[in-house]
Structure formats: C-alpha cells, structure tokens
C-alpha cells in the first residue's frame, strides 16, 4: 500500500502481480537429496570407480586416498564403489517396504473412516494391539521365523506397517465425511465407494503422504539395522547395514569401512525427513 492511501481503498478486482508459488526450503533441500540418491541408485556404475565386489589383495585396509576416497575394506574392495552401489538396494528397501503398506493402509483407512461404527471399534482395538508390539521386535520375530532376507523383511514390515497409514487416513476421513461436499455427493446419488475414494480420499490423504516420507526414512533405518544384524540383505551384497557390520571388527583400526556408509544413511534419512517436513508445510498438515 502506498503512503497516504485511503483506509477504505477498494479491493482490486484482478491481482496486479501473479502470486509467486513459494516452496518451503525443506522441500527443496529434500528433493535435491532425493534426486542425488535416486541418480546413484539407478546408475551406480556411472559414478562408482571400481567393481563393488572385486577383491584386490594389493589394496587391503587402505585408508582414504585419491585412488580410494573412502578407503578399502579387508578384501581390498573400494568402499566408495560399495557405498554408491548400496544406494540401489537401500533405496529399493525404502520404496518396496513402504509402498504396499501405504496403499493397503490408505484403502483400509478410507473404508474404516467412511463407514465408522463397529468397523471402527474393531480397528481401534487392532491398532491398540499392534502398537504394543515393539515394531523392531515384531519384525525381527517374523523375519526370524520366515528366514533372513529382503523379501521376508518386506513381508514382516508389510504385516505391521499398514496400520499406521490406516489410522491416519481413517481419522481424516471421519472429518471429511461430515462436510457438505460429501452430502452433496450423496444427494447426487453417487455410491459410497465413489464418494469415499474419489471425493473424500484426495482431501484426506495428505497426512498419510507426509507420513510416507517419514516411513521411508524409518524403513532405511530398519533395513540397515536388520542388514547389520545379518537378518536383512545378505553379504556380499552392497547394503549400508551389511557394509557397516563388515567394518565393525576393524572400527578402531580402519574406521573408514563403517563410517562412510553410515554417512550415506544419515544423508538419505535426512533427505526423506526434510521432504516430509516440506510437504507437511506445503499441505498444511499439522503433526
């Protein structure tokens, strides 16, 4: 407003300046880290200077140098190449461990939230039960029974993980179904499924999407932990948890074997967290 403007200056009919779409800083930072991670995950060979699995007995336990910026392990394998190749597996873990729980949980949450009643009561009891199991302990127990390996880890996470999405979506659906536009849909004679999934769900899904980002970060932590314990990805596969476990006996003498894969975990986790925070800010999701 210019100086000395009248207090009752009429509102302009058309905005003179187009509103700039302001993206939250966290979102941009998160997207950049994610783009970096995905590039390495899809094209590891373009960036890795060496074969991640090739032994080199002339370069055993070498500290970081120009030839091997992240050093080498006890088999002379280049740690930079192994850390880069691990992006493929760990980004897969983040995606595959979360996509099925996310979709299934969202669908179940939509139905539970829309119909409510007995379904909601039963679901509430189920949630109460599931959250009493320490997530890691339950996943470890299921993996222990099914046998170590990535596929069984996905099954274990999937059996538990959907509950959290369903709870978020159900809570939001309960609010949405009472709004006027839901009634409008009913007046138009639309079926329940059409109202729930096509009209209400798009407005109820934001918290679940934000949680998806956090969940991917959590699943990287979980996947690397299981890898470290020998229950997830199996050596000699390049996976950050497996790499760190491989270096744990050399930690005092050859710290670089475990340190650099750990930094990759932190950076990727940070990327997903920032993305989640940014999305929450953008979609005005209160957490």
């Amino acid at each position: 407003m210019s100086a000395g403007a009248l207090p009752f200056e009429p509102a302009k009919a058309t905005p003179t300046r187009r509103r700039k779409l302001a993206l939250p800083g966290a979102l941009i930072a998160g997207l950049l880290i994610l783009a970096f991670s995905l590039t390495l995950a899809f094209f590891p060979s373009l960036f890795a200077p060496f074969d991640p699995l090739k032994f080199d007995y002339k370069a055993i336990l070498k500290p970081p140098s120009l030839a091997h910026p992240f050093g080498t392990d006890n088999f002379g394998r280049d740690m930079l190449s192994r850390t880069i190749h691990a992006y493929t597996l760990d980004m897969q873990i983040a995606f595959f461990a979360t996509i099925v729980p996310m979709l299934a949980g969202t669908a179940i949450g939509t139905i539970v939230g829309y119909y409510g009643g007995l379904l909601e009561t039963l679901f509430g009891r189920l949630v109460d039960g599931v959250i009493t199991f320490p997530f890691i302990v339950l996943v470890i127990a299921i993996v222990a029974v099914l046998g170590p390996g990535l596929a069984n880890m996905y099954v274990a996470i999937g059996l538990v993980g959907w509950v959290f999405y369903a709870r978020l979506v159900a809570g939001e659906m309960k609010v949405q179904k009472r709004l006027d536009y839901a009634d409008a849909g009913r007046v138009m004679g639309y079926g329940d499924m059409r109202i729930a999934f096509r009209h209400l769900l798009p407005n109820a899904v934001s918290p679940a999407l934000v949680y998806w980002m956090t969940d991917m970060a959590l699943c990287i932590l979980l996947g690397t932990s299981l890898g470290y314990l020998g229950l997830g990805a199996q050596p000699p596969a390049a996976e950050w948890g497996v790499l760190i476990a491989g270096g744990k006996n050399f930690f005092t003498t050859a710290w670089w074997i475990s340190i650099f894969p750990g930094i990759a975990i932190v950076l990727t986790g940070l990327g997903f967290s920032l993305l989640g925070n940014g999305l929450a800010e953008l979609m005005k999701v209160k957490r």
Binding site: L221, G241, I244, G262, I265, L267, T268, L270
Partner: peptide, 18 residues
C-alpha cells in the same frame, strides 16, 4: 537433532564405542 533422528542406533553405538 534432525541428524540424530536419521542415524541408525547401531551406527551411533559403534561411534560412541570407538
């Protein structure tokens, strides 16, 4: 704390241990 949240427990443990 944001960095702390992204660190796996076993990694923090190894660093403190060392």
């Amino acid at each position: 704390f944001q960095v702390g949240l992204s660190m796996p427990v076993f990694y923090v443990g190894l660093i403190l241990l060392t």
